[in-house]
Nucleic acid binder design. Structure first.
Lengths: 235, 235
DNA sequence: GATAAATAATGACAAAAATCATTTATTGGG
DNA sequence: CCCAATAAATGATTTTTGTCATTATTTATC
């Protein structure tokens, strides 16, 4: 975790972030006061249960947001990408982080203290609006995940998760398609199953020529079939 | 679904609602413009997929919020109580309802059109603040449910759900404790399992003297034991 | 590039939970 | 209060998934 320097106006995802549209002066202040960190693959950004001092804006990389279940097993709640913000729920509610966040790749996140953040929300109503919309989207995603976990088989959920990951890993382009790179364990913790079960199902998908596997790199080669297996109607 | 008349200032849960604190004039206008409905047990308040024209403030009763899975099975996302608001996610995000809502008891809900609602959020920043906090709490609950569904056994989840329902049914007081009244099917759809499995586990809990069963009425008689089974640490 | 450590793969088995079939109870309407 | 309809309970069986053990492969490090 190394300190680095990044200016918002040079940030490729700034205009997709919730902060887009604040005036020159506030942006300069934000740039001066925020602290940007470089995280190596695997490093923890924050821990579940700890007080939230602010939020993290993802500049680069892929982040997993996860909770630890009662038996100590990880459950990945969601995958987050550049332009998304981490810790919003905790900062808004004033409660500790209800999940941990860790870098799946080498990543960069910028920390914004909550006082500064709240000041901006007061000054910019559209920021509050975007926060509400962001929370709404997260909630919709979580409700879908609940329904999926409760009703779908592991096989169906794995197909679904591979398709969702395909979106997250869109920066890992190969000539013909995105490449998902994730440990089997992380994949199991995302799908909500045992690692062995994921491995077996991946072999099956590979045998059926739905995916290609090279080590931990997975490429989807038959999307429509996976959509069918996953019973997924949203792209 | 019958129209009835209710004034917010006479509503027992008004001061616990997100609207508490608006001034006299806005309250009178809200009273004049909102429409309150009486729903009989089982009636639908709104349907998943339909456009959201506004939100519903629960005055009385118990509401289930549920989604229909790919095989047509209900999944109960959450139980809502008087003072809570329904349809917030849809109204905020401007998207259709992502779940349906139905009355579990005879219930009363007041409908507030979204234009009127948005006007209030602009005038009262504390309302926006409360909306964000409400969404944050819903999100935290959903994330917990995800972890529970992914990692706990049905037995554990049933214990957990019974304890959660005990909170929701606090108005059904008997001399010694709250009484949960819910069909086995609804309970199964809340826990995320088959109805038969719920029935078997309830018999087991009854045999172990953790609960008492009279028809569809369930009373918890050994909370600590259920907490232990559910591996639940939050009350 | 060799070596150890970590991860992935595979097999055998056990446990959990779903499904299907049937019987028993409960409830609500006439 | 009775009867039909609905819901609950129970049993038998199958399917799915998890667990444990072992081997193979990959990855990182010296």
């Amino acid at each position: 975790m190394t300190l680095i320097s990044i200016n918002c106006d040079e940030c490729p995802i700034y205009r997709k972030s919730i902060f887009f549209g604040i005036d020159e002066q506030d942006m300069v202040e934000l740039d001066n006061r925020k602290t940007c960190y470089y995280y190596k693959k695997g490093q923890i950004i924050y821990y579940e249960g700890k007080g939230a001092l602010g939020l993290y804006c993802i500049n680069n990389g892929k982040i997993k947001v996860f909770k630890i279940g009662s038996e100590g097993k990880e459950q990945i709640i969601r995958m987050a990408q550049p332009g998304e913000v981490l810790g919003l729920r905790a900062v808004i509610s004033g409660k500790p982080y209800s999940a941990s966040a860790a870098a799946l790749d080498n990543s960069v996140c910028c920390f914004i203290g909550k006082q500064r953040f709240f000041k901006l929300t007061i000054k910019y109503p559209q920021l509050s609006q975007r926060i509400m919309i962001t929370l709404s989207h997260l909630l919709e995603g979580a409700d879908n995940k609940i329904t999926s976990l409760a009703q779908k088989s592991v096989r169906e959920r794995l197909a679904e998760s591979l398709l969702a990951l395909d979106q997250v890993f869109h920066s890992n382009k190969s000539p013909d398609g995105n490449i998902i790179s994730l440990s089997r364990e992380d994949l199991a913790n995302l799908v909500g199953t045992a690692t062995e079960t994921v491995i077996r199902l991946l072999s099956e998908f590979k045998h059926d020529q739905l995916i290609e596997i090279k080590g931990r790199k997975i490429r989807i080669i038959n999307k429509p079939a996976l959509f069918k297996i996953g019973k997924t109607f949203t792209s």
